[in-house]
Write a protein that binds this DNA or RNA. Structure first.
Lengths: 403, 403
DNA sequence: TGGAGTTAGTAAATATTTTTACAAACTTAC
DNA sequence: GTAAGTTTGTAAAAATATTTACTAACTCCA
């Protein structure tokens, strides 16, 4: 059994039947319900005797299990099979500027254990890295899953990441080897990495609204602004994995200095950070808000403003409207360039559906051509708060071609 | 033999050995030089006896031919094989606003016949469509190739095209069925269609500077402005095939009205048409140019200005510089979003290398983040004037998965 | 010039897969 | 409740592919 887990990790395995066995596993994993032998054989284009042989071998390896008979209208009732969800586990870790989270998922991507450190603050230091590793090791221990059953660990981290090489360019960039090498050395499991926005895009593609859609945008609108682009059914990572820097396109109306050193970055006007700044500016200009009655202005975070808008605070609504209109204009341009079938608003702003829908749409009509705009749907993410970590865990299954 | 040509057209052929035979053909087609039986078998993962059998069947079908022995340093010299370039032909047609061209290519994509109509003017009328068909029929006749040997016909046409359905939205949009259906009905060969920019991108991907590069932009800068985006090794067409409307992103500094009805489209400042307009404006403002000595101002076309710049005309150079800087800024944003490894400047402006290189690069540094910019190369197309038609012909081979 | 070493390609032996045939397990109709 | 119809899944037969063994064709070096 242990050997077989290693085989799964090795995607380019050239063992005799390996490719076909992986196809069977992937098929079962993607299927909504358990499948029959004839059904499987038809899909993977194998004869029933050969398929039966391989399936029996997989059962012997304990990766797939028989789960009773199927109800049919006619004929002999076939046995149905599925992947044993607890055959192995994958781990998702998300490292943000503020906050560190860890989840264990089974092969059906159900969360079986979770652990968070909300006090965590990301710093580009060895100490911080050591802390992250210790947190993960501790969390694995607490989860009580058999370490031999860990298929791999996927990390979503803020900043520029080369997911191919496993290098990080903004944080933990002081290592001699790649960041994935460091982690897998410390944790003794395969480690994969990507940036937080790509991870969110993967979650939407696998579990969310971008399922079965070949061309889509997933906007990660939280404290920062990012964009996962799905083109031809694949998440675009670009040549070094830097694709999606939507927050740093020069499309702002003002000339504010961005953290990246340039002026006019979209993120200076469209982001949680910008929302906080705008709020404080407006208050200083004499505007008023319900929020001030419950919280000190210096402690107000963009999450509070989103909440206040939901509760009807006029200033908050107007500021979010403004952000929606601006991001809509930028997205409209992107529609012209990439003609997506759907745009999904994810991240913390996904909850501000009512306030954002119309303003984004209005912004889009200013820039998008009518033909591609007409066929582009605007949707708000429905995966919920753990979208990012589910995406991080999904990296492992994606890399092993199981989903 | 005739039967086999039909088989090639039918990509999803489920005949016993068909997939493997197609693999062999594709391998031979893509290879720089003829291949040996052991070499082929290794690549397509077949044993030598089986591979030999299939190759012999392909030789019997006349699609591949033996072309002598290979010079080796040691051992028995193997026979080498290649696809018979004259086994079949594909046809490329390009329909622009002004100009209609036709070329026949053999399977090695060598042009074996060509035909142009420079007086052609594209109009959205039945008459014009009938003329195009007649022109193609006539050209096929003149080419003297066996009609049974035509694999298919690829059309590159200006305007919005859905290459999946074969529909055209700007020109010839009055038909009941799709434009490809109409053409293939009239011409009795499979017809594929895409817009002129995507066709140019395909040419660069298959024959040009984007070869082997997974993420690239191909700029089509001629009378209009378009962009073919290659992401993850594939040309992005978008959900309906409308991707690449680079000329209609709202990124211009001025507020000129565009043909699309919107204001601020990049194409109003960056395009051959804009160059003509700017030239005339400047002359009216009192500027002078060498061009005026040889040509009447009303008859000056952007091609003349490009030529004048090459000859050192100060006004032309300055106007093109300006265009370069602006497109550079727009491309810089795109670099942030898609992190391409190379940007290829194609179209008529590709010849203005000296004047454009620095200005485009300068524009890029204004908007692109340093990390993705550093690894992005700027190249000018080297395929030459027939890039578009070669790309149109290549659609056929691409659709049949031979390249 | 003629072995030693190497690779190509074919023929026979072996292994694998598919096809065919059929029994088992089921539903529905009469 | 039994016959007719359907589908599953296995066992034997047929087809197909791979492995192994071997000969042919070549270079290099003594």
């Amino acid at each position: 059994m242990e050997l077989f887990l290693k085989d799964i990790r090795n995607v380019n395995n050239e063992n005799r039947h390996y490719a076909q066995k992986r196809k069977i596993i992937t098929l079962l994993n993607k299927a909504e319900s358990p499948l029959t032998i004839p059904g499987i054989c038809k899909k993977v284009k194998l004869s029933v005797p050969t398929g039966t042989k391989l399936i029996n071998e997989l059962i012997e390896s304990r990766i797939i299990v028989e789960v009773g008979k199927k109800e049919t209208d006619t004929g002999r009732r076939p046995l149905v099979y599925k992947v044993d969800p607890n055959y192995a586990y994958c781990i998702g870790v998300v490292i943000l500027l503020k906050g560190l989270s860890f989840s264990v998922f089974n092969l059906e991507m159900e969360e079986v254990h979770k652990c968070e450190n909300n006090d965590f603050v990301l710093e580009n230091t060895t100490e911080c890295l050591v802390n992250v590793v210790a947190f993960i090791q501790n969390a694995i221990g607490k989860s009580e899953i058999d370490p031999n059953k860990i298929l791999g660990l996927g990390i979503g981290i803020t900043g520029r990441i080369n997911s191919q090489t496993g290098n990080s360019y903004n944080y933990f960039n002081f290592l001699e080897s790649s960041l994935t090498n460091y982690f897998s050395g410390q944790l003794s499991v395969p480690v994969y990495i990507d940036n937080d926005t790509h991870v969110l895009g993967l979650a939407e593609q696998v579990f969310g609204e971008a399922k079965n859609i070949k061309n889509a945008f997933v906007v990660n609108l939280s404290r920062g602004l990012g964009l996962a682009i799905i083109a031809n059914g694949e998440i675009v990572s670009g040549e070094q994995g830097f694709a999606g820097e939507f927050g740093h396109i020069q499309f702002a109306e003002s000339d504010k200095l961005c953290l990246c050193g340039k002026r006019g970055c979209l993120g200076t006007e469209v982001s949680g950070y910008a929302l906080e700044q705008n709020f404080k500016e407006q208050i200083q200009l004499g505007e008023t808000s319900l929020l001030l009655s419950s919280k000190d202005i210096s402690k107000i975070q963009y999450g509070d403003i989103l909440k206040a808008a939901w509760e009807g605070d006029a200033l908050s609504i107007s500021l979010i409207h403004n952000i929606g209109f601006k991001i809509g204009k930028a997205l409209g341009n992107m529609i012209n360039l990439l003609n997506p079938g759907v745009i999904i608003i994810g991240g913390k702003f996904a909850s501000a559906t009512e306030v954002l829908t119309d303003s984004i749409k209005s912004g889009m009509t200013h820039t998008a051509l009518s033909l591609p705009l007409r066929s582009c749907e605007l949707i708000f993410s429905s995966i919920g708060a753990n979208a990012d970590i589910k995406g991080a865990g999904a990296i492992v299954l994606r890399k092993m071609q199981l989903i």
